[in-house]
Design a protein around this nucleic acid. Structure first.
Lengths: 323, 323
DNA sequence: TTCCATATGTCAACCGCTTGATATATTTTC
DNA sequence: GAAAATATATCAAGCGGTTGACATATGGAA
């Protein structure tokens, strides 16, 4: 059997209440009693049962994190910081990979609620998940509009799109093509596209229906080169896609940056250390994480906070040699 | 207040026990009663409290995952699969980034135990963490020896080192240098080095003390080129380090693969899609994850299992154009 | 009709910890 | 030296479920 508080109490020769008091620093406890209890805890190698404690306190210190897939530099960096910051606030993070699938996300959301998480951070993108509708459940969304009562945190996607396209134009590109995710998603990410389409004369946007599948992406990119041999600038809406562009270009002997300039998006540490040549729009990932966790924390501790907020953080152009 | 089982019982006009029976499919329940209960659950939007359930059942379905940092392609891919497989078995994963720091790992381990996780998967590397010594706690280590009673899962590091070095020799390298992590860690990873040092005539191994810090890595690599201008082959013990080698080589105008051949290690999807040129030793990450989770699951369900096991999975040389 | 198997429900204790209410011991105050 | 104030510890209920033991209802079979 596991050692429990009662065992500690017996060994220390005090009541369970007293042990609890010592453990939680509540009420008056004499030094002698405290010492006895601490010794007993030590001797029995006692670990308090946080499940029991959570049940009583109605607070678990768990937060759920739903990402499409952690196996992607952007989400892994984001998750890293979210976990780090949460952990400093005393929260534990439950990791969920939704793969962007509705059913998966739904079942994860349900699971999180059943497990009484104190709050949820969602970086996935499915609307219509009833579990999110509970106004008592603190939720923060990253880069996705879930509902009017759910705060959104993200970077300035319009500005990012603007910087990327402006830079390509400044570098002399005449025909710039944009590659983006599925257009039917209502995410702030669409603002990258919006900026592009507003600036460029004859915008051409290719959509990737199957994110996180590089073979598909490569096919789409080959198609771009076939359809538009005169393309001289590509603004990809993420770095992995940009990298695939570079690889396909290499395969087709298209010289970078002479024949073609490429700008990516995200600017994670991982990508920048693997591909230091890549020009990209860098998102302030740590700051996004920080903002999201802080808002969630406020929501958890105080329901009366303004919920209809959108935090827009600044992005940055990182110039390298693909442009 | 949150809706609880009692509320459902009241609305359905039955006892709490009956509701519990319906929810858990235990005992005899008439269709009529079942329907009444289900309707009440629906109407009240009831979510069972898994914390309360866990307290009683002494089983939380949580597993802890301790990695140095999820912000790294290898660990993020590994974590992805671990979460995926665990989730299929009904487990939820608590993510912990130890950064390889003793104190952090210790406090995470303690936290996990207090939260009554059913088991822990450790990919970090600190020994001497008392929390792991509890023989009643199911633990599986990935690529690190923690204690004789903790099963280890990993790939064949010796074979990996052998394949990498052999390949470099086959490609005509005369002076091969190896870059590895800190040598004082007792990990199976050291077998990569062992293979290298056994095959090569005058082995030269550089150690990276500060993993996950690319600036340091770049400095070390520059030093290698300074110390050994005649180096014509590098076997790096991970892909990120290999990528930094490529970048430094580029910076110094060393032509790859003509002047220098580089072999990395890990072969994650992310790295291979960003750097399809990189020759590397590919670890069977999904299989590692799968094996680890299955062993952990067995340990959780049956303590009498053989604990002193080491699972060694096969690696594969992925030949590309850096060699 | 009586008896027993089957079907359907309820009661109450328990999981391990917390805490308001309460009791007892010790010290301070006048 | 008694009352008041302070320090220390205990009792018992409760957090939200689960479940073994027990009660009642229903329907044949004898």
């Amino acid at each position: 059997m596991k050692v429990k508080l009662e065992d500690v109490a017996k060994l220390a020769g005090v009541s369970p209440t007293t042990v609890s008091r010592v453990l939680n620093n509540r009420g008056y406890i004499s030094d002698k009693t405290r010492k006895k209890v601490e010794d007993a805890v030590e001797e029995l190698n006692y670990y308090p049962n946080d499940i029991a404690r959570s049940l009583f306190k109605k607070r678990t210190n768990f937060i759920g994190l739903i990402v499409p897939t952690i196996n992607n530099p952007f989400f892994s960096e984001l998750s890293f910081y979210i976990e780090k910051i949460s952990s400093n606030l005393g929260f534990k993070v439950i990791l969920c990979n939704s793969l962007g699938e509705f059913e998966k996300e739904k079942s994860y959301a349900t699971m999180l609620i059943r497990h009484q998480v104190d709050g949820i951070i969602v970086c996935s993108y499915n609307r219509g998940i009833e579990a999110y509708d509970n106004p008592r459940l603190p939720i923060v969304a990253i880069d996705h509009y879930l509902s009017p009562t759910i705060p959104v945190v993200g970077s300035d996607n319009y500005q990012g799109g603007y910087l990327a396209v402006k830079h390509l134009i400044d570098q002399g590109c005449k025909k710039i093509i944009h590659i983006n995710g599925p257009g039917d998603l209502e995410t702030p990410t669409q603002n990258r596209r919006k900026a592009y389409e507003e600036i460029v004369d004859n915008p051409i946007t290719y959509e990737l229906n199957n994110l996180f599948n590089e073979e598909e992406t490569a096919k789409t990119i080959r198609k771009i080169f076939r359809d538009h041999p005169d393309v001289d600038g590509i603004f990809a809406s993420d770095d992995i896609t940009a990298a695939v562009c570079l690889n396909v270009a290499d395969e087709l002997n298209i010289s970078i940056p002479n024949d073609l300039k490429v700008v990516g998006y995200d600017g994670t540490d991982t990508v920048l250390s693997l591909l230091p040549h890549l020009t990209t729009i860098q998102q302030p990932i740590e700051e996004i994480a920080n903002t999201a966790v802080l808002i969630l924390n406020k929501l958890i501790n105080d329901f009366e906070i303004e919920r209809n907020t959108e935090s827009v953080l600044a992005v940055q152009l990182v110039k390298n040699s693909t442009t």
